[in-house]
Design a binder for these strands. Structure first.
Lengths: 233, 233
DNA sequence: CGCATAGTTGAACTCTCTCAACAGCCGTGG
DNA sequence: CCACGGCTGTTGAGAGAGTTCAACTATGCG
């Protein structure tokens, strides 16, 4: 299995979507993933430490085994943009550049697998199905990116938080959400501040839309309402 | 030449970047474009009218010959997000879905060429170089998308406008910029309002960074300053 | 000439940010 | 065992960037 792609990530959810969709080869691609996992190198990353930095050579491709990872970018004055949160099964660090355009850090203690980039390059060159698979994945990523640009450009703070919770719930495929990232991470992901994130979460709690049990546990009480808020209803 | 991709666009600038870059086949892909143009159907689109709407079947792939096109999305309450502006040489309407996820409209009177989607699909299936070419294009698009998410999530209004002008100047490859789109289009592209766009353009004019000759003509007087503002200097 | 559309400018407002204080949790060390 | 410091999260009050509402100008087209 090979992935020579832009600095991008493949969510397990996207992979599942592709399998449900029109691409027969995606199932076969997945079938090879166990063997692939065995070929990769495993690393344990402690909470907060970096897997790679913006500007590093892009020599490896990664997959999250356990824990969670964030990819981010910094402006010169320290403003931060979080590109993505990665959970078990998600690929990251795929790149068509020689150097990293993002930093990747472990949000909590995590285990990752990694493969040398040329292994992926070779596999893609050999198997045209992989190329098509990648195209589909990239298209999915681009579609998600456009949804997020709409969010960042036009949605209010409540709508952003609601959208975020809906997204996270979809990726955990249940109503009980674990949020391993800090409020600051969420803020930088949604273009808000820590305080606003905190305030709006308590507001949603007050409105009986969600339930909060500690900072990391969120339960969706009224999914319809949450989706309604997310879409600006 | 074939392009079965997400709802996305290929800027001529990206194509040029690819040619400068590591892909030898991109030149060959381009070499075939004249022949391709002859095989396509030409249409004249009058200012303001749609080429396709969100939800339409995605049967064709398009290229701008003259004029300019915008792709956009609407929220239920009318808030609009502009995904892209397309200029002569840019492809658009590439899609891996059966239906459109954007609306495409002519910003000014425009001529476009279009090809049935299956023509592109066939060509990509036949030529693995095309697949790789597309991957590179998509990666470029994703990279641009991330830059814009940073812009929408973390940049101030002045920084957004400055970034926009720098981007447009790059795509016209000179300091004299034509802005065929309205202030509302720019606002929906940058996540601002018409009034803010207008105010900040006059502010940049007052600061001698740009020169305005009518609403559509912008000349960059101090490119270094503009780039500095764009990056938050 | 009149109307519609696009752009600019002004003034008031508001959503979110900024600054600040405080609370809760956790690991460390006395 | 508790005290302490550091970090994260919450909450409050004030400030500000950008929006909203509104008036006015300019341009183009019938």
């Amino acid at each position: 299995m090979e992935m020579r792609v832009a600095e991008t990530n493949l969510h397990r959810a996207h992979t599942q979507a592709a399998r449900r969709g029109s691409l027969p080869e995606s199932a076969q691609v997945e079938a090879g993933s166990e063997a692939l996992d065995r070929r990769g190198m495993r690393s344990v990353i402690t909470r907060g430490s970096a897997i790679f930095y913006e500007g590093d050579p892009a020599d490896w491709v990664y997959k999250v085994v356990s824990g969670a990872v964030r990819t981010s970018k910094l402006m010169a004055d320290g403003r931060r943009y979080i590109a993505d949160f990665l959970f078990p099964g998600d690929f990251f660090g795929l790149n068509d550049r020689t150097y990293r355009t993002f930093t990747a850090e472990a949000i909590c203690d995590a285990i990752i697998v990694r493969w040398p980039r040329h292994v992926f390059d070779g596999a893609v060159a050999d198997d045209p199905r992989l190329g098509r698979f990648l195209l589909t994945m990239l298209c999915g990523g681009l579609s998600v990116a456009h949804d997020r640009m709409l969010l960042l450009g036009r949605k209010t703070a409540v709508e952003r938080i609601a959208s975020f919770l809906v997204e996270m719930a979809a990726r955990e495929s249940r109503d009980r959400i674990e949020l391993p990232m800090t409020r600051a991470d969420i803020a930088d992901y949604l273009g808000l501040t820590v305080e606003t994130v905190s305030r709006i979460l308590t507001q949603l709690k007050t409105d009986r839309v969600i339930q909060l049990a500690g900072p990391t546990h969120v339960t969706i009480l009224d999914e319809a309402a949450l989706r309604g808020i997310a879409e600006g209803g």
